[in-house]
Amino acid sequence: MTLAPDLLRSLPKVSLHDHLDGGLRPATVFGIATEIGHPLPADSPEALGRWFAESANSGSLVRYLETFDHTIAVMQTPEHLRRVAREFVEDLAADGVVYGEARWAPEQHTRGGLSEADAVEAVRDGLTEGMLVCADRGHRLQVQQLVTSMRHVEPSTRIAELALAYRDQGVAGFDIAGAEDGFPAERFLPAFQLLKQASFPYTIHAGEAAGVDSIWGALQVCSANRIGHGVRIVEDITSNDDGSVTLGRLAAYVRDQQIPLELCPSSNAQTGAVASLDAHPFPLLDGLGFVVTVNSDNQLMSGTTLSHEMGVLVDHLGYDLDGLERITLNAAASAFLPHPLREELIDDVILPGFEAARG
């Protein structure tokens, strides 16, 4: 079946895995880069957008991550960070998102003299401006920060402490991101222990560029609340000759403990975590009872939106409106929000929105 793009955009959406520095508008990157004299591999916003998409389709996570050199370069002042954050919210609202989490690494935004705290405050202010602008336009949404450490740097608790310092100012959680293979989450165990002791939630990138062992470390050593990507958990699931499947110990644990998986279909195919969109294990995991959620990962690099990712599920993986509602409810229930607010989001926004879509 297929669902019209306008219908998909109208659906209320929850975005859990979306990188702020991967969601800039091409025109914004081009404009700020021109202003600050940063060289770009294209001579117009349109050509730049194509360059990002072509680079992201290389099939290599390393090449994919290299595209961030240009977005991070234009996010080094309070004004530019606020602008990027404000536009990020506006773009989510235009796509029907009602709750979002913007993850980014403050340690990458200090080249111009900002402290990491200055950077967090600039993004905080930009997200707030965006939410106010959208509310004035009649679309209310909440967007919070996930403060991230880069996993390839020397591990410390510094960024975790920063996240805790701003936990009552729009920072909803913590993450580690970047080159996954060779940099296990366990390196940051003291940071995760600090967060756990402070009763603060966190997600961990795992099971994308690295396999099942990375998911095991993120969960069984570092006690992650959610798994960023996690698509390679299928390597712990065996297909039997009679058509049934057998879950390994870790896969069974992820399912039975209902650990949310932040799956990103287009990105997973682009980085080689899955062979193709048609081969994505999203419906397999969903059918087995895993808590799957759909996400855009990097809107600029993947040339995508959350509506587009829903369209991928429909066009490539056989989803219908009921299936999209189910995974949206998964996402809302997995948000780093207080439980009463998650219930309110579900009862007052998600369920009525999908009911309206059914006509």
Rank of each mutant, 00 (worst) to 15 (best):
T238M: 08
G289L: 11
D242Y: 04
D286G: 05
A279I: 02
S296V: 14
P260Y: 02
L261D: 00
D236M: 06
V291S: 12
L261S: 05
L284F: 01
G248A: 11
L247Y: 00
D241I: 07
S239Q: 14
P283K: 10
S266Q: 00
V294K: 07
L261T: 00
V294D: 04
D236R: 02
L250E: 04
G287M: 06
I233F: 12
T246L: 12
P281T: 02
P283G: 10
D241Y: 00
A251G: 04
R255E: 07
C264R: 02
L247T: 03
C264I: 05
P283M: 10
S239W: 09
R249M: 08
A251T: 03
L263A: 02
L288D: 01
R249L: 10
L261I: 05
S296D: 06
I233Y: 07
D278Q: 14
H280M: 01
A251C: 02
R255M: 10
A273D: 00
L285T: 11
N295G: 11
N298M: 08
V234E: 02
D256P: 10
G248C: 06
S276H: 04
T246D: 11
S267L: 03
Q270L: 14
C264Q: 01
P265H: 00
V291I: 14
G287W: 01
P281G: 06
G272D: 03
T246E: 12
G287P: 06
G272L: 12
T293V: 07
D256Q: 12
T271L: 14
T238H: 12
N268H: 09
R255S: 11
L261K: 01
D236W: 01
D286S: 15
Y253L: 15
R255N: 12
Y253D: 14
V274M: 07
S239A: 15
L285E: 05
V274Q: 04
L285Y: 09
S296Q: 09
N298T: 13
A275K: 09
N268F: 06
R249I: 03
I237R: 07
Y253R: 15
T271Y: 08
L285F: 13
P260H: 02
R232W: 08
D297T: 09
A251D: 00
L288H: 01
T238I: 08
V292E: 06
D241S: 14
V291H: 05
A252I: 01
V234C: 11
S276R: 04
N240K: 15
G287I: 03
G248L: 05
D236K: 02
F290W: 03
D297S: 12
G289H: 11
T271M: 09
R232A: 14
D278C: 12
D242Q: 06
A273C: 07
G272K: 10
D236G: 10
I233T: 11
N295K: 08
S276I: 09
I237K: 11
L263F: 02
Q257Y: 10
N240P: 08
D241A: 15
A252M: 08
G243Y: 11
V245K: 04
L284D: 00
L263I: 05
V245C: 11
P265G: 02
S276F: 05
S244W: 09
V292Q: 10
S239N: 12
N240F: 08
A279V: 03
D242L: 10
A251Q: 00
L263D: 00
D236P: 05
S266Y: 00
S267K: 03
P283C: 13
